[in-house]
Simulated scan of single mutants.
Amino acid sequence: MSQTRAMLQRAPHAWGLALALLGAVCFSAKAVVVKLAYRHGVDASTLLAMRMLLSWPLFLGALVVVSVRSREPWNLSQRDIGLIALAGLLGYYLASLFDFMGLQYITAGLERLILFTYPSLVLIMTCLRKRQWPARWQLACMALSYAGLLVVYGHETVLTGANTTLGVFLVFLSAVCYASYLMVGEELLKRLGTIRVTALAMLVSTAAVLLQTAVQQPFSVIWNQPAPVWGWSVVNALLCTFVPVFAVMTAISLIGAQRVSQMGMVGPIATILLGTVALNEPFTVWHATGTGLVLAGVALLSFKRPAA
């Protein structure tokens, strides 16, 4: 651990950028990995259960390591426990479930663009909580992003049919749940630390997924999945869930949240490229136009600061 810390401190900017890029690409690859697993006949709930079963021991191990190394007491109140449970249900259960379900009907590129607009949803929720209207420039940024989504959505509806609407709706619900998770977990993340909150929320979501699976079908359905589904689930749990979480957290500690967010702009582009190569998804001038509008709107919304 000390050798790793020393290595990062020798070139913090370079390592920070590299880890932020790694996190963005790994997060973005999730949609492609899920769609590759769907080719073998697995359903969304089973695939999500496999992801949780394979990833929760990793987060539990990280939680144990942090707890052993940290000398700060936990001091979890009943309110903290309730918020962690709510964060787990929103961020790693419902958001993931709606996302996996939506990916059955839309391309990986469109899915990533929809999820990428979550800053606008956080802004709307913040304004509702404070009972105030967004600024004009914020409304303009959101309009730009959603105009881009409409361009891509309209074109994909022509290419893939009516199920695109269902897929878009499900992934948008996922984005709403993720934005709600960020709102719920903001205070906890600052006070308890990202690893603790993420690991505990993952345990809650794993319990919820397993409960849903037990109600829907026998657990033997999971164990009897073909080898390719298990293989893609391992990739999903390790490279698309566990690795990017810690890569992004380490990058934030090295170069700051704003620069890491800027590197996150690579995410939709990486998903589109991976989807085109691995899934043979179409990428037309309409996709390029819509993607550009979404990226521009989110970038302006995330990094523009109102005049003092």
Rank of each mutant, 00 (worst) to 15 (best):
L211A: 05
L182W: 13
Y178D: 04
A179V: 09
A175N: 04
V197E: 11
L189P: 03
L166C: 05
V197F: 00
M183I: 15
E187D: 13
S205L: 06
T194V: 02
A207F: 10
V171A: 07
A179N: 03
Q212F: 14
R191M: 11
Q216W: 08
L166K: 15
L203M: 15
V184H: 04
L170V: 09
A175P: 07
T194G: 11
S205C: 02
V204K: 09
I195G: 10
A201Q: 00
V176M: 08
T194C: 04
V215Y: 13
A208G: 00
Q217I: 11
V209D: 06
A175C: 11
L173P: 13
I195N: 10
L210Y: 12
E186W: 05
C177P: 06
S174P: 04
F219E: 01
R191N: 08
F169V: 08
A208M: 07
V184Y: 07
F172L: 12
V171W: 07
V215I: 03
F169P: 14
S205Y: 11
G167V: 04
A208W: 10
A175Y: 01
V215A: 12
V171Y: 04
L192F: 14
K190H: 05
S180C: 01
V197Q: 01
V168T: 13
L203D: 07
A207G: 08
L189W: 12
L188H: 01
T198A: 02
V168R: 13
Y181D: 07
T206A: 12
E187H: 14
I195A: 14
S180P: 02
A201S: 14
S205M: 03
L173F: 04
T213N: 07
L173H: 13
Y181Q: 07
L203S: 14
G185Y: 05
P218I: 00
F172M: 15
T194W: 06
F169D: 12
V204Q: 06
F172R: 14
R191V: 07
M202H: 02
P218L: 05
F219I: 08
I195P: 04
L188F: 02
L210T: 07
E187A: 12
S205Q: 04
C177D: 00
L170F: 15
G185K: 13
T206Q: 07
M202A: 02
T198R: 05
A214M: 03
T198D: 02
L166M: 14
V215F: 12
V184T: 04
L200T: 11
L170Q: 11
V215L: 10
A201W: 09
R196I: 05
P218K: 04
E186M: 13
Q212Y: 14
T165Y: 09
P218V: 07
Q216K: 11
A179Y: 06
I195H: 08
G167P: 01
S174Q: 05
L166F: 04
A179C: 03
C177R: 02
V184Q: 00
A214D: 06
V197A: 09
I195M: 09
L166G: 12
T213W: 08
T198K: 10
G167C: 01
L188W: 07
L170W: 09
A179L: 01
R196A: 02
L200I: 05
C177L: 12
M183L: 13
F172G: 10
L173N: 13
Q217K: 05
L188A: 02
L203N: 15
L200W: 03
T194P: 09
L203Y: 15
E187Y: 12
T165I: 10
L203E: 07
S180F: 03
L200S: 00
M183C: 12
Q217R: 03
L211S: 09
T165P: 05
V171K: 12
G167L: 04
